[in-house]
Computed example of a mutant assay.
Amino acid sequence: MSLLLSPLTLRGTTFRNRVWLAPMCQYSAADDGLPTDWHLAHLGARAVGGFGLVLTEAAAVVPEGRISPQDVGIWNDEQVTAWRRITDFIRARGAHSGIQLAHAGRKASTYRPFGEGRGSVPTTDGGWTAVGPTGDAFPGYAAPHELTEAEILAVPGQFADATRRALAAGFDVVEVHAAHGYLLHQFLSPLSNTRTDRWGGDLAGRAQLLLDTVDAVRAVLPEQDPLLVRVSATDWTDGGLTGDDTATVAGWLREHGVDLVDVSTGGNVLADIPVGPGYQVPFARQVRDTGIAAGAVGMITTPHQAEKVLTGGDADVVLLGRPALFDPSWPLRAARELGDDTPVLAHEPGSPDARIVEGQPTGWVPQYGRGSWG
């Protein structure tokens, strides 16, 4: 068996493999943050295609935490119902479902990238006033409202309430989004957090909101449910967050009950990023070396490359974004290319269409009563 396609257990949850779907914004929600048939098709196809964990896009914990007016959310019960049919479908196909809980902070209320506009959406066009650690704006966006201490203190509770709804919606995993220049990353980075109170200053002060949020989420999650955190390991800019900083924070996250750190980079300021195959993998290794499980992401495109990331000890899982868009059945193709003859679990045992495929060519899955290639 390849390591890539071997199971991984975090707390009381065993994932069927180590190929996970990375969160990807779809900007396709219905009114009031509701996921739609688009999300069922997008996420469900990857569950059918063999991914071990299917993570949603950033789901806002409050309406003003959306990146755009077309983002999904998890702040009301109607959203819970809409998400439930998606998690039920994912589970019936043998995958686990995870939700990425997010607050966009100063990068909220922006136009989606579909040619409708650029920068911040004005209130006259359905936008709202964004918030941040300070009143400093992300380049090209409107200035945010600087959060008061009382408003900061409310943030962990917002994530906790969203976690309760995520559990009611049937999600198996929660990921706290602290990357890509969104609110929790804004507090972590010295480039966006120049506060002088207990929420700013040194790394410990800047990490306080993230740790408080993790504590609030962990307190709601059942003991057996894994908790992930996505981080941007570096700002790619002098004076910004560094890999060493993130390794330190990863150690704190482990002490606060986080089970895996999903390691990305950038997004908080404009930067010249040296993009290339596996360019973020060394940061995952740096996090993993602190003793916590790590996920690697970023231009990991081929099965052999992904396998090498894991066998080399750089990460415990790989998360795929664009490759999963190009090929929803990437894990099944990986099994064929890696020569892995492990039986393919097409659907969850006990579901009406459950079958464990034995003795078939790797990548073969039953569809509509006949064999076909995944």
Rank of each mutant, 00 (worst) to 15 (best):
G243A: 10
L227K: 08
P277Y: 00
T242K: 09
A293W: 09
V249Y: 08
V249W: 14
D259I: 13
D225I: 03
P222Y: 04
D340S: 03
G321M: 06
G257W: 06
L260V: 05
E337V: 08
E223G: 05
W252H: 11
L228M: 15
P282Q: 07
A284Y: 03
V297W: 08
P328L: 04
V297M: 14
G313F: 00
E307R: 08
A296T: 13
V261H: 05
E337T: 02
P274W: 03
R285P: 00
G339K: 06
V275P: 01
S329K: 10
L338P: 04
G266D: 10
P323R: 03
G240K: 00
V249C: 05
F326R: 12
V229N: 13
V249K: 07
F283L: 15
G321V: 04
E255Y: 00
L332E: 12
L310C: 05
V275L: 13
R336P: 02
D259T: 06
V258G: 13
Q286G: 11
V309Q: 06
L260Q: 11
A233Q: 11
S232K: 05
G313V: 03
P222F: 08
R230M: 15
L325Q: 14
A271T: 01
W236D: 07
F283H: 09
G339S: 09
E307N: 14
S232M: 08
D340C: 08
T248L: 10
G239V: 14
T234Y: 12
L260P: 14
K308I: 04
A293R: 14
R336M: 12
G298N: 13
L270S: 13
T237F: 00
R230K: 15
T311L: 00
A296D: 07
Q286I: 01
N268G: 15
G298L: 05
T234I: 06
D245G: 04
